[in-house]
Computed example of a mutant assay.
Amino acid sequence: MNQTKVSEVSELPAGVPEATLVDLYRTMSLIRTFEERVHELFVEGELPGFLHLCSGQEATAAGVIAHLRTEDGITSTHRNHGHALAKGVSPAAMMIELYGRAGGTNAGKGGSMHLADQRVGHVASGGIVGAGAPLALGLAQAAKLAGTDGVAAVFFGDGAAQQGTVLESMNLAAVWKLPILFVCENNLFGQATTIGYSSAVAPAARAEGFGMASEEVDGQDVIAVYQAAGRAVERARAGEGPTYLELTTYSYHGAWEGEPKRAYRLPEVESDFRGRDPLRLLAAALAAVKQDWIDVKDEIEEEIEEQVESAIEAGRAAPYPDPATVTEGVYADPTVTIDRDGLTVH
């Protein structure tokens, strides 16, 4: 795998417009700022529930989703904030959801792990490992049956790469030549279990068994991710079937917020990934070719900081859900009653 160090970045690759790279930096900056502020709010005891942050993994979401249209659907994981922001979900609606308030992406009922907004193609997130794969398979099949050039993408971790649901979905995608990207965010750990301990081969190697195109990419380098995803999306839209992308990256905040012990994470590994931070890599590349980059960078970061702070205020100000709405949006009908014996339905 080609791992580019910050000091080695001297020019931008041919075929990637400068404006696109600025947009990629904007997306990654939004994800990083959102996640770091959410981390602070959680530590201060202001946010309820569980959080699984993606600081350090910004390039995977930004680089892949930059090629997707609004109507192209994605499914995500419990570590979903970056995917949602890159797909266009409102930061304010997300923050309101994290506060458990009405007006959030899931009406304050789903919390961090279940963010979704079908209006922008972020169809589902969840804490069941590997569960997004068959859902994305349905999106890809729907696009194919409708005769469109729509594409679906499923994001999952290296731990989920071992799941039967993912492998079964890969098999069907290959058999039916479905327009889908299997995006494995390999951050080295399935919770505290290393990928080398749990898998006999690299996750992308499994694609070979299904005759599926695959690439292993430095997930810290958003330019490399963007280029690989572009090839995969082009193949999918042309009717050439699925692609498996294994993006090697790292989660700065560990498995979940509040993780009590991180002795399993070697300092030298963490320092290596932080030394190749996705935002620093791209900023260095842009600084080498764009004379006004420092000013542009400052404007982007100031704008995003204001946007995230506004989202936090929206979360704090939003009301709690009305208890009367507790059965709305779930598999229950408040007009149906069941007798005590549990057999007779009215």
Results as ranks from 00 to 15, higher is better:
S7Y: 09
E8A: 08
P13A: 06
G15P: 14
R26F: 03
M28H: 01
I31P: 03
I31L: 10
T33S: 06
E35Q: 11
R37T: 08
H39R: 12
E46H: 06
F50N: 09
L51G: 07
C54V: 14
C54Q: 08
S55K: 01
Q57R: 13
T60F: 07
V64F: 11
H67Q: 13
E71V: 15
G82T: 00
A84P: 05
A84V: 08
L85G: 01
K87T: 01
G88R: 06
L98C: 08
A102R: 10
A102K: 12
T105S: 02
N106V: 07
K109Y: 11
A116Y: 02
Q118S: 10
Q118M: 10
R119Q: 15
V129S: 03
G132L: 03
P134F: 00
L135M: 11
A136K: 03
L137V: 10
L137Q: 14
G138V: 02
A143S: 15
L145C: 07
D149N: 03
D149W: 03
A153C: 09
A153Q: 04
F156D: 05
G157A: 09
D158K: 05
Q163C: 08
Q163L: 05
V166L: 11
V166C: 09
K177A: 11
I180M: 02
N186E: 15
A192N: 11
T193N: 13
S198G: 15
A202Y: 14
A202T: 12
P203S: 11
F210S: 03
M212H: 07
E215H: 14
Q220P: 07
Q220C: 10
A229E: 01
R231M: 04
V233H: 05
R237W: 05
R237E: 09
G239S: 08
P242R: 00
L245G: 04
L247S: 02
T248V: 11
G254S: 08
W256V: 12
E257N: 13
K261P: 02
L266F: 15
P267V: 02
E268V: 13
V269Q: 15
E270G: 06
D277E: 13
A283P: 05
L286S: 04
K290N: 12
K290W: 13
D292L: 08
D298R: 14
D298A: 11
E305I: 10
Y320I: 05
A324G: 09
T325D: 05
T327K: 15
T327P: 12
Y331H: 13
I338E: 15
G342R: 15
